[in-house]
Design a protein around this nucleic acid. Sequence first.
DNA 1: ATCCAATCGATCAAAATATATCGATATAAA
DNA 2: TTTATATCGATATATTTTGATCGATTGGAT
Lengths: 224, 224
Amino acid sequence: MEIARTNPGGTNTATLTRLPKYLAYLKIKQKQGVTAISSTRIANDLRLTPILVRKDLATVSQAGRPKTGYPMDALIGDLERFLGCENARDAFLVGAGRLGRALMGYGQFQDYGLTILAAFDTDEALHGREFDGKPVLPVEKLPDLVRRMQVHLAILAVPDSAAQATADLLVQSGVRAIWNFTTETIAVPDNVLVQHENLAASLAILSKRLAALFDREKQGGTQP
Amino acid sequence: MEIARTNPGGTNTATLTRLPKYLAYLKIKQKQGVTAISSTRIANDLRLTPILVRKDLATVSQAGRPKTGYPMDALIGDLERFLGCENARDAFLVGAGRLGRALMGYGQFQDYGLTILAAFDTDEALHGREFDGKPVLPVEKLPDLVRRMQVHLAILAVPDSAAQATADLLVQSGVRAIWNFTTETIAVPDNVLVQHENLAASLAILSKRLAALFDREKQGGTQP
DNA sequence: ATCCAATCGATCAAAATATATCGATATAAA
DNA sequence: TTTATATCGATATATTTTGATCGATTGGAT
């Protein structure tokens, strides 16, 4: 038996995390009236190397031209096609508390092909209300709607204590991927994906970087 | 001139993102009464390899023992010391809208050494209110308080349109690290850190994984 | 007390990711 | 038109991260 560990023909994960950043950055430049941009300039502004930028962009676009760089409109189009079409999905949000509502209002999702169709919550006081045009429905309706609307992706934003039970319900209903915003680790069958959005991990990295910054300054005077 | 590209004596970023996950997982096991645990078991539950787990844990603890694995209390202690003490910080939150309030309620932060002291907002209706015990103050008070309380870290959760201006204010006040939850790219001087919390990047990865899952199932029947 | 199975940690190998080099090409200036 | 220059993209190299192997060590069973 052979284990497929690689990702043939695919875009590597590191690149994938940067593509949305390029897109966001390029849109700003476009607004400023820039019509073409070089990898060097992108790299400078985004604190990357030009080589890396070229490699990343090569996975989604062939629009780059010597001397002038990338034509802005074509590049943005290619990025949007890649991040949008490739990723276009409908999703249900489970849990309409503060975090859930914050996620409903996170405008960026739509730009990247994610449409939150509706939210579900156990709190009756929320049923029938809307946030950013998205209705809050009783959780009881979730299984049926998942099946009928063929929704494969769910965003889990319930209280930690309900995380596993809700995940079980989602899996039983036929959801194939769960974006987990709780702090609980949830167990699912092998044929279901979980992505744990871990703010604590981000925090750890930032704190570490800050500590390193202070260390450098203490040792090396100001800037090395 | 020599470019310092590496991170001597430091913990690598990938490891750093996993450490909070280990900690969260171990705490659950501890609650269940487990007193010692092997890298194999951790790896199984967290979908990692035992080798990687051992390597990661080696960066924070020497408590591992042949035959028995890691004594739970010692390992958790080492992780907490590393993630907590090494990184303990106070922070101000700027922007007390839905996202800001969701972040105030994100209990996990305290566990990892982050204390949100207060939130700031321009909306007068919010001034004086409290969320999770954290007061909302007028933005005008921010610069003075940053200086007096020597707060170096700020969490930016204002509307996108105010992102850069608020960042400028933070930098002027003396903040050294900004955790950016807006979707704007913000510009800061070299001696200030920015970490952009990019949900779009996470979404891109999850979508890609889900697409890959469907591809595999279409080609290979059910499971490879 | 001795053996056995489980496990860690160190060393070595592979894969993933990032960087460097360099030829090709398009634009602008001489 | 020719030349100079900026830039891309392909290939080669380096670095980082992950995985495999294996000897050493511990705790329990015999």
